[in-house]
Structure formats: C-alpha cells, structure tokens
C-alpha cells in the first residue's frame, strides 16, 4: 500500500504545475476595505510592478513584469493586444487588468502604465489589495 500512495504522490507531483509564472518583483500589497471581486477569472490579465527581488541583477528601480518577463511601459500595448487575442471576440472589451503593485512603488511608473493602458484601450483596471485588518 505505501507503494500505491507514493505512486499517487509522484504522479501528482509530476503532473501538477504549481504556478505558471514566478513573480520576480516585490509584492507587498497595500490594504483596503472597499474591495470588489472579479467574477470571470479568464478575463483578467496581470501586471506586476515593484522593486526586483534580485537587486544585484536588475537594480533597485521598480520594474513591470508581464507573464515571465520584465517589460517597458511602451510594450504594454502589445501585451494587451496579445491578451485580447486569447479571448473570444465578444469578450475582448471586458478584459480587466489587475495591477499588483508593491506598497513602496511610486505613482510615477504606475501612471505611465495607466497611460499606456488607455492607449491600448484596456480601461478596466483593478488595483490588487489585501483586506484591511483593522476597522477605520
């Protein structure tokens, strides 16, 4: 019987992919109380913004990560179009971009991202946050 258990264990270990992207920027999310939930998970595209985790390799400046790579603000339009291409034609305008931004990031880079998103016509935006712990 232990053999069967181990077989199952190995089977799942091999077949399950834990996560398709590993996040290479700091992710200390801000807290908020007025959160809303997104219903359709397939309609969400993620952008991660923050200071790189490997500071010696990438420097201390905040970077934008999409999928598995760091991108420049200018490349966002292309990225949005790719994300839209994966959706059904009828659902393309419902794409929501979830911005996972680290607490310490400055507004400047986020504003640049927002400007590009406006140009790319992906205007539904969600700032990812954690629930607030204490009542305010």
């Amino acid at each position: 019987m232990p053999d069967v258990v181990f077989m199952l264990l190995f089977f799942f270990m091999v077949t399950t992919t834990l996560r398709d992207t590993s996040i290479n920027v700091q992710q200390r999310l801000p807290e908020a109380s007025q959160m809303r939930k997104l219903q359709r998970k397939t309609l969400v595209a993620y952008l991660y913004v923050g200071e790189p985790k490997k500071v010696d390799q990438w420097g201390k400046e905040p970077k934008i990560q999409a999928n598995d790579v760091f991108i420049q603000p200018k490349e966002i339009i292309q990225w949005v179009n790719q994300a839209k291409a994966n959706l059904d034609e009828s659902e393309r305008d419902q794409l929501t971009v979830a911005l996972k931004v680290d607490n310490e990031t400055k507004r400047g880079i986020i504003a640049d991202v927002e400007t590009e998103l406006r140009k790319a016509n992906a205007r539904k935006l969600l700032y990812s946050t954690n629930p607030k712990r204490e009542e305010f």
């Binding site: 908020a32 939930k37 205007r123």
Partner: peptide, 9 residues
Amino acid sequence: IKGLSIGLP
C-alpha cells in the same frame, strides 16, 4: 482577484 476597481478615461 480582489481589489479597488476603477475605470480609466
């Protein structure tokens, strides 16, 4: 996927 939702101009 929870957070503050806004619409961009």
